[in-house]
């Protein structure tokens, strides 16, 4: 018995099909050069946002009036702004703010959207109608406008930006998860686990969720890009991060006055926003192709 136990629990030596599936996924993903570059940048951003602030020698909010509006140089790599703050340092410190907004808002909005979508698709009927009509209402607003409305009600702060962006991410997730749930729900194994006495909760979270996870991952990656863009937009409008926080959108706004005389004030934050959004978009597209090879073409 003891011998058998060991063999069953550890299994005879063979590479698990799950690991093989991961290998195949990595192979497909690594073939897509753009996605690899996008992924590399995302990784770099994450590392920078964690260790970056410890490596910079300057204070992102330290005002040095003598150095104001310096062009990029060996000392101030990206130049300085109108208060003499080092733009490079501010960009590095702003990285974590940007990623925080992106990841948190998508995590919150995504979770809510996934639950709505899966419940809607699984139960159907009235619940489905109610949830999806609410989602339709949310979708009817242009994203930035909805976020703007929410932030102006809640008040301008980075935290409220996260909430606003989360709210407008919900319907996208709800829709995509609902449609996947609808197709999984009618498969026979759902009937089979029901016939084995599984509860709805168990069916939803144990049997349906793992089967709809790949569109969720793809959607989340692409949504981070949108979230970053929206958050910067709100900060640019003065509704997000408040000065002197080194948020990129807010930096863009600060630099607006000096656009003609010192364009580097806007150039670097703008460039960073573009690169981050691009990286997430490219990586998301690559993920989609790699997770669902049938969908390609």
């Amino acid at each position: 018995m003891a011998g058998k136990t060991v063999e069953v629990i550890n299994g005879p030596k063979r590479s698990s099909p799950r690991i093989e599936a991961y290998k195949a996924f990595w192979k497909r993903l690594s073939k897509n050069k753009a996605a690899v570059v996008g992924g590399f940048f995302i990784l770099l951003f994450i590392v920078v946002s964690i260790v970056g602030p410890f490596l910079t020698t300057k204070d992102p909010t330290e005002v040095m009036v003598l150095n104001k509006l310096q062009p990029p140089s060996a000392e101030f790599w990206f130049g300085t702004d109108n208060f003499g703050r080092d733009i490079f340092t501010r960009i590095i410190h702003g990285m974590s703010l940007t990623l925080k907004v992106g990841f948190l808002s998508v995590a919150i909005g995504g979770s809510i959207g996934v639950i709505f979508g899966i419940v809607s698709g699984y139960y159907g009927g009235k619940i489905d109608t109610i949830i999806m009509r609410v989602m339709d209402v949310l979708l009817a607003f242009p994203g930035i406008l909805l976020a703007l409305a929410i932030v102006s009600v809640l008040g301008g702060s980075l935290q409220n930006v996260i909430i606003a962006v989360a709210v407008f991410s919900v319907p996208a997730f709800a829709r995509i998860v609902r449609s996947s749930t609808l197709s999984v729900r009618q498969l026979e194994y759902i009937d089979a686990v029901k016939a084995l006495g599984a509860s709805d909760f168990r069916i939803i979270f144990k049997h349906i969720l793992p089967n709809v996870v790949s569109p969720i991952i793809v959607q989340a990656t692409l949504r981070i890009a949108t979230a970053v863009l929206t958050a910067s937009g709100l900060s640019f409008l003065g509704l997000g991060a408040q000065p002197p926080e080194p948020e990129w959108g807010a930096m863009l706004n600060d630099g607006r006055t000096y656009m003609k005389t010192a364009p580097h004030l806007m150039l670097f934050p703008g460039m960073m926003i573009a690169i981050v959004v691009l990286a997430f978009n490219i990586f998301g597209d690559g993920l989609r192709d790699a997770l669902d090879p049938k969908m390609k073409k």
Partner: peptide, 16 residues
């Protein structure tokens, strides 16, 4: 269900 009365289905390919 599954305890006192259980059921097997027609289509084994999609029942798992």
């Amino acid at each position: 269900r599954g305890n006192a009365i259980s059921m097997i289905f027609q289509e084994p390919m999609t029942s798992l």
